[in-house]
Design a protein around this nucleic acid. Structure first.
Lengths: 288, 288
DNA sequence: ATGAAAGCGCTAACAT
DNA sequence: ATGTTAGCGCTTTCAT
């Protein structure tokens, strides 16, 4: 490519987009980034990466930097799925929110369909014959936790079932999973499956259940959420999990941004379905 | 900031650097990225992120893209510490290698001092009174594995000790850690400490040792490498580990790049020391 | 068909 | 001290 500055100057566009992660760059941002980069790189568009570290000041600083650099568009991501206020009012370039969504319905957001993911998890447990299903998840004030819990409960209800225990809200950690196992083991009625709000919780639960003599999946089947490789593979038995297709979300967001840049803006929230990745923790015939 | 394209055009510099990760963006690249972004952002320099996915074609494509965009400099990173050939011959802008290093000694590289990290690990084990120390690590063809193993062995030798078992080379996984535990347990002489080449290996080892009835750290003290939060915290007991200060490496690389851009280039490899982060897996009085 | 020139927005050097 | 202008490298338009 010849001198890009001169081209940009006269063309009025830079073939550049900004990507602002409002929380820090982390486990969730990486696949988003890779997906976005994939779609953009193919279109010869380069990505400015900005890490706002959950700091509104940094966020606005980067926003101004990006606009000053005349980016053609901006992707906003974060590590929580909760809707957030628009990053700025009436910006001169298109903005697409990925993973997080904007509270303004006119904005374009691409998010994982967490409710659908939870539904798939429960239906999988029902399909392998489990009827006494519990749900252990993250903090009650966390959007992902409440959305997944509500969908899990309503899927159970649709099958005519009560949850085997009230939803256990806690933290997104293995420690909480272990602690929750203790709580579930002390309940009267036996439980034959647990859907966990994260792979970490599921792994902690798996360890503690087995230390207490329960077999996984024979006695208790287990499903996690996120399909985080080190967790699902490190867990024994390997953990069935819901994959939110973050890379697909990143790619879709980038494609919608490119479309918007080319004059065809999209609006509203689109929720992408996830996939259930079956592994040993819900195998029907664990011996095989 | 006013129109950046016009400024760049006439100034001949863009206040932009490129960051090429030759392997994919992953767990190691993120802290590097954050550190680099930190140092650069403070200097009003924006970062183009390029993920070459271990593909030489993509690497060259991105290199040309970055040069076409007249970046002021380039940071090259990867997920292996092994030295690699320079990304291009006689480039018109300064290049700094971060985490990986260049085989050309005239190039500027910032890498973790892995040998120093291994030495700290062994010395810590010796300091808490262990004398029968084994080392379990990744693949023998992996640079990090051999460097750490050699440093561990020579530190033991310097203390007049033989390793309690030959170095066990395997994979960077929990599964290998569990397997290695079996091997170590079947050796004649008892082992009172294991230095592991990664936190994942250490975690697998911790699990398997304890399932076999050994107490950690009372019977066997354990040290990992990487200080990866989910592993060191998820491990029971919490894992002592070596932190390579990746963020510091990223920051240093960025600072050296800025200096080079300002006409003061550095050359050669500089190795940054890591830190030992003590946790329960090497506690002298576990009860406390 | 090929070539010359204007202008994108800014800065720095110059003239007033 | 303030104002004017040339030119960075490219594309697009217009004249040859």
């Amino acid at each position: 490519m010849a001198n890009a500055a001169a081209r940009s100057l006269q063309a009025g566009r830079t073939y550049t987009v900004g990507m602002i992660t409002t929380d820090s760059i982390g486990r969730f941002s990486i696949p988003l980034l890779i997906g976005a980069e994939d779609a953009l790189g193919a279109g010869q568009v380069s990505v400015f990466l900005c890490d706002a570290r959950d700091d509104p000041i940094r966020e606005q600083y980067y926003l101004r930097t990006l606009l000053g650099r005349q980016v053609d568009g901006i992707i906003v991501t974060g590590r929580r799925t909760q809707a957030r206020p628009p990053i700025g009012p009436s910006l001169p370039v298109p903005v697409v929110y990925a993973f997080i969504s904007s509270t303004d319905p006119a904005d374009c957001s691409v998010v994982p369909d967490e409710a659908d993911g939870a539904r798939r998890a429960i239906e999988h447990l029902l399909a392998i014959g489990r009827r006494r299903v519990a749900h252990v998840t993250g903090p009650e004030h966390h959007h992902s936790a409440t959305v997944r819990a509500a969908a899990a409960m309503s899927t159970l209800a649709a099958a005519g079932l009560e949850p085997a225990a009230p939803v256990l809200f806690g933290e997104w950690s293995e420690a909480w999973g272990r602690q929750a196992a203790g709580i579930l083991l002390s309940t009267e009625a036996p439980i034959d499956a647990v859907f966990c709000g994260s792979d970490q919780i599921a792994r902690g639960l798996a360890e503690a259940l087995q230390e207490a003599g329960r077999r996984v999946p024979a006695d208790v089947a287990l499903i996690g959420f996120d399909n985080w490789d080190v967790m699902v593979d490190g867990c024994r038995p390997a953990l069935t999990s819901i994959d939110m297709d973050l890379e697909g979300i990143g790619r879709t967001a980038a494609e919608l941004l490119l479309a918007a840049i080319n004059g065809d803006p999209a609006h509203g929230r689109r929720a992408l379905p996830g996939r259930l990745i079956p592994r040993a923790s819900t195998a029907v015939h664990p011996a095989l």
